[in-house]
């Protein structure tokens, strides 16, 4: 089968991956699943487990919960196979299920543990949550893991809708139309949402942003 070639896109160790480039034959794969071909389901699983787990991890900030939710997404895709019709991109459908599950999980969690933490999502349009001052004191010796954790926390502190928008735009590299469908908003509203989100991150991650030029020069990366 031709679409087995796309499988190779999964599993590269790099930081970035491009869902947009992987969508070519997803609709066909899903139609094959609908027709009873479970091998095609396994291909979709292999292709999207890492993007989905990462998206969900960045949403819920807990690897165990992220995996549980990713399992649930795949199970729902499987259960809905007979009703599948290729009216929208497969990734739109997939990430819409994932987004709704993540938001529900966050809300359930919020009611369960009412303590306010950095991980707790803040209401849309609320003032951006300020990171504690000590978090902003970053010296050059900060190890890579702390940098990543600092970035993850800043993303996690975004209001839910802004967070979804950034994750889909920055990490899944989806186009505006697709993200707008997932978030059920207009493209114009999405652009405002993205602007506000990146503006907040620019402030929260200012120490890293101002460092980035020096880092790139030191590591010999093109800027």
């Amino acid at each position: 089968m031709e679409h087995t070639q796309t499988l190779q896109l999964y599993g590269t160790a790099g930081v970035r991956y491009n869902v947009g480039a992987m969508t070519r034959s997803d609709v066909q794969l899903m139609l094959d699943v609908k027709a009873g071909d479970e091998a095609s389901f396994n291909l979709l699983l292999q292709k999207y487990r890492t993007p989905l787990v990462n998206f969900l991890y960045r949403m819920v900030r807990n690897t165990g919960t992220a995996e549980d939710l990713a399992q649930e997404v795949f199970l729902r895709v499987y259960r809905a196979r007979k009703q599948y019709s290729p009216s929208a991109k497969f990734t739109t459908w997939l990430f819409r299920i994932a987004t709704n599950l993540a938001l529900n999980s966050l809300r359930d969690n919020r009611y369960r543990q009412m303590d306010v933490s950095i991980d707790a999502p803040v209401e849309e349009d609320a003032a951006p949550l300020q990171l504690p001052a000590r978090e902003l004191r970053i010296d050059e010796k900060m190890i890579e893991r702390d940098r990543s954790e600092f970035i993850r926390r800043a993303i996690a502190a975004l209001p839910e809708k802004q967070r979804v928008a950034v994750l889909l735009h920055k990490y899944e590299e989806m186009d505006y139309g697709e993200i707008a469908k997932i978030l059920e908003c207009s493209e114009s509203a999405l652009k405002s949402l993205l602007f506000r989100a990146y503006e907040t991150l620019r402030v929260q991650l200012a120490p890293l942003v101002s460092q980035s030029v020096a880092n790139r020069a030191r590591e010999g990366r093109p800027s």
């Binding site: 930081v15 787990v53 990462n54 991890y57 940098r147 970035i151 991650l205 942003v209 980035s212």
Partner: peptide, 9 residues
């Protein structure tokens, strides 16, 4: 560029 630093799990 900074956001790209976060490794995949």
């Amino acid at each position: 560029g900074v956001l790209d630093e976060v490794p995949l799990v």
